[in-house]
Computed example of a mutant assay.
Amino acid sequence: MTVRERLYRTTSALQRRIVPELKYSQASYEDELRRHLPRAQAWLDVGCGHRLLPEWRSEAEAELLARVPFAAGIDRDYDALRKHRTIRNVLQADIGMLPFQERSFDLVTANMVIEHLDDPLHQFREIARVLRPGGVFLFHTPNLKSYVIRIARLLPDRMKKSLARVLEGRQEEDVYPTHYRANTADGVRSIADRAGLDVVSIRFTASTPVFSLVPPLAVIELLYLRQVMRRPHLASHGQTLICALRRPAE
């Protein structure tokens, strides 16, 4: 067992003792995705990169895609698309200029992409254009009000890339510039309304510790997360948002 694996196991044991109800936000997003997939005949994932779900969920990712008659993915990063592991129909394209006809998809998703959008109003309008009436735009993104993002915004890009590599095992080429222009509940509601999308739900989600590899810091983080999860007035400070928007039915 590597040192990294031992540290993760230590933090997992601490998590089970301090806040056993805590769930990884990616697992919460996957649960929400499973709720919407049964009604989808055509699914588009924007900013798909080289995967839809975390690395260790490759089998689940393939199983989800097998449920939908047609699935496509787009991303601006050609090198990431070349390594994509599950979606067969991938295209290099920008979210602000989707290469699809109007009303092409029942479901559009974005996993940890919205924080990178430079003009979310325009990009949400483009997503609304390709959604069929009644279609859903589901996305998972960091919450601007969380302690993680408040700290991250104070750091220079070079340090962010180094921390992402050490704490998350992400390669430097997988760390992209962030803008956080649609990363609060109020911001999502405002942009959705102007883009012609109805808000179905906005969930604040707590997640596993960022400092899992540093158990003393993880203990402090877990104690804080316990308060976030158990005190309703602190819920809006969860690490991520999971939002579902719908194009109105006609």
Score class of each variant (00 low, 15 high):
Met1Ala: 12
Thr2Ala: 03
Arg6Gly: 02
Gln15Lys: 15
Gln15Pro: 08
Ile18Thr: 15
Val19Asp: 06
Leu22Met: 14
Gln26Trp: 04
Ala27Gly: 00
Leu33Thr: 03
Leu37His: 05
Leu37Arg: 08
Ala40Gln: 03
Gly47Asn: 02
Leu53Ile: 07
Glu55Gln: 14
Ala62Trp: 00
Leu65Trp: 00
Leu65Gln: 01
Arg67Leu: 04
Val68Cys: 10
Gly73Ser: 04
Asp79Gln: 14
Arg82Tyr: 01
Thr86Arg: 02
Asn89Trp: 13
Val90Glu: 07
Gln92Glu: 13
Met97Gly: 09
Glu102Ile: 04
Ser104Pro: 06
Ser104Met: 09
Ala110Leu: 15
Glu115Trp: 00
His116Cys: 06
Leu117Ser: 04
Leu117Gln: 06
Asp118Thr: 14
Leu121Arg: 15
Gln123Asn: 13
Glu126Tyr: 03
Arg129Glu: 06
Arg132Val: 14
His140Gln: 04
Asn143Arg: 10
Ser146Phe: 01
Leu155Pro: 03
Lys161Trp: 05
Lys161Phe: 01
Ala164Leu: 15
Val166Gln: 12
Glu168Thr: 05
Glu172Thr: 09
Asp174Ser: 13
Val175Leu: 02
Tyr176His: 13
Arg181Gln: 13
Gly187Thr: 08
Ser190Val: 11
Gly196Glu: 13
Asp198Arg: 15
Thr205Asn: 12
Ala206Thr: 11
Ser207Thr: 15
Thr208Arg: 11
Leu213Gly: 07
Pro216Asp: 10
Pro216Leu: 07
Ile220Met: 13
Glu221Ile: 03
Arg231Cys: 08
Thr240His: 09
Cys243Tyr: 02
Leu245Arg: 13
